[in-house]
């Protein structure tokens, strides 16, 4: 087995990512070959040296404090968010939705109105015009027409009386003029 393949198997063995076949292959090699064991020990020593080397400095404790404060703040914000405030967060979407519903409602109403007008126009125009007109006019209007006729009749009667009076006066005036001329009727 090549050194490269051995190293690959050793690396995968460290992370537990070997298949059963690979595991058996590596175990056999490590059992039988001294150089394979030495290679494994070298590699592990190098990785351990890096792991065990301390960092030049540790994290600033203030960073931990700041993270905790931010975490607490985010949590409080989440708790404060009531369903209403969540809705308000979506104001633009909410407003659009309401506008869409309103437009839809108006559209339906308009369509219904047009349909009704078309229906009524069809009936009055052809089938039963008189009945539709009677239905359309209010009954009180008939009474008002009658009252108006009565008034006209009264007016006409007065006029006739006036005309009769004028006629009488004219006759009397004519008789006076004829008398003056010496003519008697």
């Amino acid at each position: 087995m090549s050194e490269e393949k051995l190293e690959r198997l050793l690396l995968l063995a460290q992370t537990g990512e070997l298949s059963d076949v690979q595991r058996k292959e590596l175990d056999t090699l490590l059992t039988q070959t001294e150089s394979a064991r030495a290679y494994r020990d070298d590699m592990e020593a190098m990785l351990s040296a890096v792991r065990d080397t301390p960092l030049p400095r540790d994290l600033d404790p203030m960073v931990m404090r700041r993270i905790e404060i931010q975490g607490r703040r985010a949590m409080n914000t989440r708790e404060r968010r009531s369903p209403v405030s969540i809705l308000l967060t979506w104001r633009p979407a909410l407003a659009s939705g309401i506008a869409a519903i309103a437009l839809l409602f108006l559209g339906i109403r308009f369509a219904q109105q047009n349909e009704g007008n078309a229906e009524s126009a069809g009936v009055t125009g052809a089938d039963q015009p008189v009945e539709r007109m009677e239905f359309a006019w209010d009954v009180e209007f008939d009474d008002e027409v009658e009252d108006l006729n009565d008034l006209l009749a009264l007016a006409e009667g007065d006029l006739d009386a006036s005309l009769d009076a004028v006629g009488d006066s004219e006759d009397e005036l004519l008789q006076e003029l004829l008398k003056l001329e010496g003519i008697n009727i």
Binding site: L11, L12, T15, G16, E17, M46, L47, A49, V50, T53
Partner: peptide, 30 residues
């Protein structure tokens, strides 16, 4: 140990990231 860490600094970024994710975080290759 410091010399090894110093040598790690000379690695290209992608190799260094893999190496440190193995050594510092113990992450599997997958």
């Amino acid at each position: 140990g410091e010399q090894i860490v110093a040598a790690v600094r000379t690695l290209p970024d992608d190799q260094r990231a893999v190496f440190l994710m193995r050594t510092e975080a113990d992450l599997p290759f997958k």
